[in-house]
């Protein structure tokens, strides 16, 4: 860990092009008006103020379909070993970095995840202002980066950029790109503090979030929220799996065998705990038979301290994606508003 000051945003462009020398550089860009992660080779202007893409980077490390083994007609069975390109993500926001820290802890030494994750270099960019619908500040995941980055950039109003490195790879990336840094002086440290305060003040007051979290986390588990409350939310979940697909910390998968002639492949495929059959057993026993049971289980997983991950952070990083996608308006803020007595 360490930090230095880059003289101008042009130094960041140098870094991006430097990274592109031996990595695919993936950055947020506006495509037909929608922010997306796209391959840029570090060319063009960096989108400093673009809203975070709705589809995050989870799928690069934990693909929607990950073959794990394959067999052929002779009966030979071999594991499927991914060979991901070296990549660099530039422009990850604090929430997405906190989410990657969660994925790292969850998947641990899993060789498929590790292989993909080890091929990636993560460059964060701090949010100087709240994004629409984001509430990272309520769950200690932002707006300034806390975790998982190799490099993290804080753009200063005077054009300079503070670069923090969280790994030797990140530090080396600056040097390899020929980017020089100056020590962070006292004035700059003060300025960073002011920027953090301004960023924090830019979030709308959502007192129901703390109230909802407190009720959800009251001991003993589940005691403070009556079953009827969850059952009332249940019918609003259409089991569309939009939230679990977009959620940067959702990791559930199923395993499917796909036949191909005399051979076949076994693959992990994203699953969703909101689907009716997620836990239904072959015997017919169903541990979450009603939609409200499944909604409760999901939000407990996201918002309960029992599932706290690295740094004691909740499974929800406050990115707001589920609220954008949920047709039943029971994304994280929707549910917290209901639990916190806001509606």
């Amino acid at each position: 860990m360490g930090a230095g000051v880059l003289a101008s945003r042009a130094a960041v462009d140098r870094l991006r092009r430097g990274l592109a020398r031996d990595r695919r550089v993936i950055e947020p860009r506006s495509v037909d008006g929608a922010p997306l992660w796209v391959e840029t080779a570090g060319e063009g202007a960096f989108a400093w103020t673009l809203a975070p893409p709705l589809v995050g980077v989870k799928g690069w490390f934990f693909p929607p379909r990950e073959p794990v083994l394959a067999w052929d007609g002779t009966g030979a069975v071999l594991p499927t070993v991914p060979s991901p390109d070296r990549i660099a993500f530039v422009g990850l926001r604090a929430c997405d970095l906190a989410a990657i820290a969660h994925l790292d802890a969850h998947f641990g030494a899993d060789p498929w995840y590790r292989t993909r994750r080890d091929a990636a270099l993560l460059v964060g960019v701090d949010c100087l202002q709240a994004c629409a619908g984001g509430f990272c500040i309520e769950v200690d995941a932002g707006p300034f980066a806390r975790a998982a980055f190799d490099l993290n950039l804080t753009p200063l109003p005077d054009g300079r950029v503070v670069a923090a490195w969280g790994s030797a790879v990140g530090r080396a990336a600056l040097a390899d790109a020929g980017v020089t840094t100056k020590a962070v002086d006292e004035g700059t440290t003060l300025l960073l503090g002011e920027l953090a305060t301004t960023a924090a003040a830019s979030f709308p007051v959502r007192s129901y979030v703390a109230r909802g979290l407190a009720r959800l986390n009251a001991a003993p588990a589940g005691a403070a929220i009556a079953d009827e409350e969850w059952q009332a939310l249940g019918p609003r979940c259409l089991a569309c799996t939009g939230c679990t697909s977009l959620c940067p910390t959702c990791t559930c998968f199923t395993v499917v065998d796909e036949l191909d002639g005399a051979g076949g492949a076994r693959a992990r495929v994203w699953d969703s705990c909101l689907l009716e059959g997620f836990q239904r057993e072959a015997s017919g026993h169903h541990p979450a038979p009603r939609p409200g049971d499944r909604v409760r289980r999901f939000w407990y997983h996201k918002l309960s301290r029992d599932f706290a991950g690295p740094g004691g952070r909740l499974g929800c990083v406050g990115c707001g994606r589920c609220d954008v996608t949920c047709p039943g308006t029971i994304g994280a803020l929707g549910v917290l508003a209901a639990l916190g007595g806001e509606r």
């Binding site: 899993d110 990791t251 998968f253 199923t254 395993v255 699953d271 309960s304």
Partner: peptide, 9 residues
């Protein structure tokens, strides 16, 4: 890893 079997936490 897959999440299918969880009971509370």
């Amino acid at each position: 890893l897959c999440g299918h079997c969880y009971v509370n936490a």
